[in-house]
Design a protein around this nucleic acid. Structure first.
Lengths: 242, 242
DNA sequence: GCGCACATCTTTGTATACAGGTTAGCGGGG
DNA sequence: CCCCGCTAACCTGTATACAAAGATGTGCGC
């Protein structure tokens, strides 16, 4: 049965989706038996999935204790973005450098830039309600950008580390729901990053990447502190002790 | 039995040691049942240990296939050091910054600097044979430095990522055996890093960290290419297909 | 002598059983 | 009314059993 079924993978994907989408709230207990029954699997695959999610930061895991969906704290969010700011701008810069030598690595970025311009044009023509609905389409472009950077990354350690941070990032996105105004600035930031990469300007790509992350963090914090969550210095967001 | 025995942990530590020390050669098969018999454990803890080691880069793991001790390639070594060069100098710099504000974080580094000076003095008085024997003592200081940086690291993501790279780094050290000459330059590099941190000079700490890693990589490559290993462009080091 | 097919054996994935902690709820005492 | 200790259910760690998928090696045919 070795390579065919992939039950462990299925459980992992399912759990990851549920946590990212906040269907499973921070602090919720992840009992191996209970999840196994719900997902139609035995404890072994569930165990494995939980360990994988723990390494991606989506699950708080202490040996011998019940695993819980990872808590969200303002301090944690800051640390995450500090770290991303160290890695991702550097990756963008290295892609720009590589693209100047080997034209082929630029193809996905040219395409993304094109999609972005198209989106921009059509977006401006919409009314507010339709703009809000176009969120999904914009999200796909930005997600595509992040994935393209990872794929173009020459250094496997860097690529893997950036990829490992994506799950947490995605969950935070689901938490914030920033409006059309942020969407426009984010669009501008992505245009800057894409242009810098396509033009082979590593320094500009790095700067644009840094700027984008800083803006994203700020928008995230604004959105969070504006909500009815209880946020303290480094206090955890509300937690479902379920 | 949850938190008391720690069989999984024991198997993990044992395997990690065996791989780091090259007792288990790159490419060696890691059969769950076989290892379980050797270490007196069942498949479950062995499985878990193998997964953990895979995430640390000590094991090559493909679902459904036999896990193998990770191969070593020149390209992989370069990638590892490229990545470390992104993280560790930054961590050193952030420790220097933090130390300028909070004197307490500097204590371990002051102590390490003292130990280093002592070692330096006694080392110079030794003959070549005794110098070679003092390797272990020097190693403890450098390892202590790396651990102190990790411990002082404010950002948990950065700390964890640096820590995860240590196993691979340690294994490479076991592979190279650089001589007393390198030991002296390395000592000088550590002195520079420690002084910069203690003086709260973040920029100098970052530069010294970068320099140290560059020198270490060069020494490693020299040592490797001087051995009877077959190294190609990005070809793997000899591999025990055992 | 060489190549292919089949049978066997090893190895992983998954399920389940058992042993011992951990935690949470409940009741009694201060 | 609150706090502490006990009990009981739950949950994890580990071992073992079973099924399928590869890998291997052998023997037969050409």
């Amino acid at each position: 049965m070795a390579r065919s079924t992939g039950k462990s993978e299925a459980v992992y994907e399912r759990l990851k989706g549920d946590i990212e989408s906040l269907r499973l709230r921070p602090g919720a207990k992840l009992s191996e038996v209970q999840l196994g029954e719900e997902l139609g699997a035995s404890r072994t695959p569930v165990r494995e999935a939980i360990r994988r999610l723990a390494r991606e930061g989506l699950v708080d895991f202490v040996p011998g204790e019940v695993a819980r969906v990872a808590a969200i704290s303002l301090g944690g969010v800051r640390a995450l973005f500090d770290f991303r700011m160290l890695l991702e701008p550097r990756a963008a810069a290295s892609v720009a450098t590589a693209g100047a030598v080997d034209e082929r690595v630029l193809a996905p970025f040219r395409e993304l830039l094109e999609r972005l311009e198209e989106f921009d044009e059509s977006f401006r023509a919409l009314d507010a309600a339709a703009q809000a609905r176009s969120y999904q389409e914009f999200y796909e472009v930005t997600e595509g950008f992040d994935q393209a950077v990872i794929a173009a990354c020459r250094n496997p350690y860097l690529a893997r580390t950036i990829r490992d941070l994506r799950s947490e990032t995605v969950r935070l996105r689901h938490l914030s729901h920033s409006g059309p105004r942020r969407m426009l600035t984010s669009l501008e930031e992505h245009r800057a990053m894409l242009k810098a990469i396509v033009q082979g300007d590593a320094q500009a790509a790095e700067a644009a990447g840094r700027h984008h992350l800083a803006q994203t963090l700020q928008a995230l914090i604004d959105s969070l502190t504006g909500q009815d969550f209880a946020i303290g210095a480094n206090i955890h967001l509300d937690v479902a002790r379920q």
